[in-house]
Design a binder for these strands. Sequence first.
DNA 1: TAGTGGTCTAGACCACAAC
DNA 2: TTGTGGTCTAGACCACTAA
Lengths: 244, 244
Amino acid sequence: MMQVQRPKPIANQVTEILTDRIRMQQYEPGSRLPSEDDLAKELRVSRATVRSALARMAGEGLVVRRQGDGTYVNENIVEVPTRMGGMWDFLRLIEHSGRTPSTTLLSKKKRPASAAEANALSVSAASIVLALRRLFFADGKPVILAESVIPADLILQPLGPEDGILPIKDLLSQNCDQTIAYTIVDIHAELPDEAISRLMQFNGGAPILRLQQVFFNRNNLPLLYSVSNYNDSVLGMRLVHTWG
Amino acid sequence: MMQVQRPKPIANQVTEILTDRIRMQQYEPGSRLPSEDDLAKELRVSRATVRSALARMAGEGLVVRRQGDGTYVNENIVEVPTRMGGMWDFLRLIEHSGRTPSTTLLSKKKRPASAAEANALSVSAASIVLALRRLFFADGKPVILAESVIPADLILQPLGPEDGILPIKDLLSQNCDQTIAYTIVDIHAELPDEAISRLMQFNGGAPILRLQQVFFNRNNLPLLYSVSNYNDSVLGMRLVHTWG
DNA sequence: TAGTGGTCTAGACCACAAC
DNA sequence: TTGTGGTCTAGACCACTAA
């Protein structure tokens, strides 16, 4: 099931190299990186390629660039999961917060879509979908309860017993041969109902974050609709937004 | 107080032109844009410049690009405020949702910083800050209650009577000569206390979204700390995330 | 003034999808 | 096969900051 490894784009490799150096503190927080010309010479690539990598890292907030001065490691950003995929890969998100992640598959079944699901996925009412209910833990404590719904006709390869706990990105790739291009997220504050409170071991009346997401591929085909209940008293939700 | 207008970068102008054409439906939702070569010829710029503009628009989800095929207007994105600034400019955000925005300044005063504020702004405990409490309305209904706090020593120009209702971006620019480079946002679900419920005209026990933000300039200097209480039952919070 | 990042160009070649 | 976007290069010039 492993895909063939075609050579990665040079700019991505440069991004990885520089990101690794920052993570390994080879470039210390707050310090200045070598100039674009120096990096280009060292890595044997053009300055444009280095710039493309640095622009991406600046967009994620990992570095700050100052014209006439230099490129600096952003010391405020170290613990923020600013990577695109990382935000919706709950296991990595929890791990990133310094806790031990784990997950269980509560249920996996095919059923007719609800009205809201059919609407979100642009499929006809009550058409068949595969529904996965999953619970994610941080240090053994439940933090995220997610229900993901996929149109049944997208599934090319039946899910094996281990596939239910895969990140959705990988599940869509392996079982549907689909790649996520973008997602639209609606964020709401909710009071958990009794079923959710029980599963997430709530006792007080604390509110939770509820994220409703639709994932699309490059052809604007809705791939997956997901509702995540997010216990933000345990695991904070943090974003970085860059300007320009 | 108007700044001099230096010529805008060509790539930004191209971005604006193409974005306008999409907004004006000159390029219809779902339709294919002219090829990069054609746009470059038409606008008399290099293909690299066109690509820079299109890459930005694709990063915001406004268009979808398909190698070997073309660049398409994303029909799912029309109402999503994906622009970087737009997310935290509440007046524009409300306007974008199709309602009439308005705002009032509840209070404006200098006072010592709280412990949380001093920590967020990296200033010494109880140093003087300017605090603005603002309430934003959509069609006359209160939707966002925000308290913004600026270190007093950043303020070069005293705030006039009209400055209290400016977007923070403009306020920081005009009165502090500062530009926002990025912001770190923490999102939580909260039950509003009695004071907030009264100001936002709540009656039931519905939870709200609370956003805590710190805005930084390119020198990593904290400029402003803001706590926004967000009535998401009136005004939904929606984000777009692109991959790649 | 020297060195940095910011912008832009022209051109080459590749990967991919539609016809 | 053709045309599209994806990648990369080399080089020029500009804008800004620090010394």
